[in-house]
Design a protein around this nucleic acid. Structure first.
Length: 420
RNA sequence: GGAGAGAUGGCUGAGCGGUUGAAAGCACCGGUCUUGAAAACCGGCAAGGUGGCAACACCUUCCAGAGUUCGAAUCUCUGUCUCUCCGCCA
């Protein structure tokens, strides 16, 4: 949610930012409604003040056993005015919120301006593309050949975009999640949290998925929604609360399934387990003081990259442009891992600084020297486990259809060399 | 699922129709004292908003929503959540 004072004071700048994110100019409309709302408020408050005064007087007169009928009649008259003004104020407030709640965050000044993913910019890379003296297979070819990855059974049970992993592949998924969690908790200073996978609509509003992106989500019952990422419960941990400055930075992590309808991705990445309705992810979330959020984003990115480095997987980091960034983000880095079977880089992590955008929506503040300020929130994948599994299959495959086990994961596999 | 109790400021907790935005304690902040700290003592300390250059004034908020009343933290209804007991159960 946006700071209305900022829009009031910088309408042109605000519109320019919104334009860079593909929105139409709206600041004037906002200011107009806001003005009407405040004017209504002022009149209403004056009448309420008058009413309060009269009521107090009535109390005094009654306790002195005096007649208060004149005063009571006056208050009765005011009531009609109060009700209609209250109605008008609510109307204006709703109008304002309907607009504000659907506008994306203002991009950071260092976020490149651009229309779509083609204008994302290269930030850095690590490692090199591995070379193969055979044609590297796609992850689902390796998986299906091993009989440990099955899409048909999954679709029989649940329809398209689901997968079943068996035996060593299922274990690989578990080993990866374990490795990531251990690293983030024991080395990177994140606290592991076990969170609900179902959340209320108000929680999704706080992080920005609702009201605008309901179609991307699975709803389960009247007010229960499956989380599309652990970012939602983790970021919302302290919604409507005032933290003490000594509690910051707060770094939390969680390994959860994620559920996405993939409504806008019909026909996209239909083969394999790259884009599923359900996948698992280790998520990183930081709650920090505003002046530290830029540094925290770099730190978080390093934590996510660290996992890929440990697994010796080549990747590049892209800075998303204004047109490609998510709704709540000010700045986002995508980590794209190299997939030799596809001969492509593919997103495996996305790290975002959301500034105070989510904190305003969910009302999370911190107290420092008697000052209450909205915190800054950051989230990042550290990493998407399913896609990491894909990357390992494709990068560690051998000509005979086997897959070498990365050094750091061997401890989960009795020091075996190969997966199959 | 059945029966009952409850939800008040950062926390604990009083208030149960009218100067109560709310006692008291803890925590926190400032001061006195001390070589320093602790203790003790003194003072301050809810959030959001409107108007105002400001000082400041006013409004709203005691889980949420609706209602009764001239007036609601206090009464009524609905919802949500928490706790206790019983049943069921991973």
């Amino acid at each position: 949610m946006h700071n209305i004072n900022y829009i009031r004071e910088n309408p042109t700048e605000f519109d320019n930012f919104m334009k860079s994110r593909g929105e139409n100019p709206i600041a004037n409309k906002i200011i107009e409604i806001d003005k009407e709302k405040r004017e209504t408020q002022t009149v209403l408050q004056n009448i309420l003040a008058e009413r309060n005064l009269l009521s107090k007087n009535i109390g005094k007169l009654k306790s002195e056993k005096k007649d208060a009928r004149t005063e009571m009649a006056k208050v009765e008259d005011l009531k009609i005015k109060v009700n209609s003004l209250k109605e008008l104020e609510t109307l204006k407030d709703d109008e304002l919120n309907a607009i504000l709640s659907r506008l994306p965050n203002i991009p950071d000044l260092s976020t490149p301006v651009g229309k779509n993913e083609d204008e994302n910019t290269f930030y850095r890379e690590w490692g090199e593309k591995p070379s193969f003296n055979f044609a590297p297979k796609l992850h689902f070819e390796i998986g299906e050949n091993s009989n440990l990855m099955n899409f048909e059974i999954a679709s029989k049970l649940s329809g398209s975009r689901f997968v079943i992993l068996k035996g060593q592949l299922s274990k690989l998924e578990r080993a990866l999640a374990n490795y990531m969690l251990e690293k983030h908790t024991s080395v990177n200073g994140y606290i592991e949290i076990h969170v609900p996978y179902l959340v209320k609509a108000s929680t999704l509003y706080g992080t920005g998925q609702l009201p605008k992106f309901a179609e991307d989500l699975f709803q389960a019952g009247d007010d229960h929604w499956l989380i599309p990422t652990a970012e939602i419960p983790l970021t919302s941990l302290y919604s409507n609360e005032i933290l003490h400055v000594s509690q910051l930075p707060m770094r939390v992590t969680s390994y959860t399934p994620c559920f996405r309808s993939e409504a806008g991705a019909a026909g996209k990445d239909t083969r394999g387990m790259l884009r599923q309705h359900q996948f698992t992810k280790v998520e990183l979330v930081s709650l920090v003081e505003p002046e530290h959020s830029n540094d925290e984003l770099e730190r978080m990115l390093n934590c996510a990259e660290g996992i890929l480095q440990d697994l010796d997987l080549h990747y590049r980091v892209m800075t998303l442009c204004t047109g490609d960034m998510g709704f709540a983000a000010k700045k986002t880095y995508d980590i794209e891992v190299w997939l030799p079977g596809e001969n492509k880089y593919r997103e495996i992590s996305s790290c975002s600084n959301c500034g105070d955008f989510q904190a305003r929506r969910m009302n999370t503040r911190y107290k420092n020297n008697d000052q209450n300020t909205h915190i800054h929130t950051l989230n990042g994948s550290g990493l998407a486990v399913g896609r990491t599994l894909i990357a390992i299959l494709e990068n560690y495959q051998t000509p005979d259809g086997n897959v070498k086990i990365p050094e750091v994961l061997k401890k989960y596999f009795d020091n075996e060399k190969n997966l199959f």
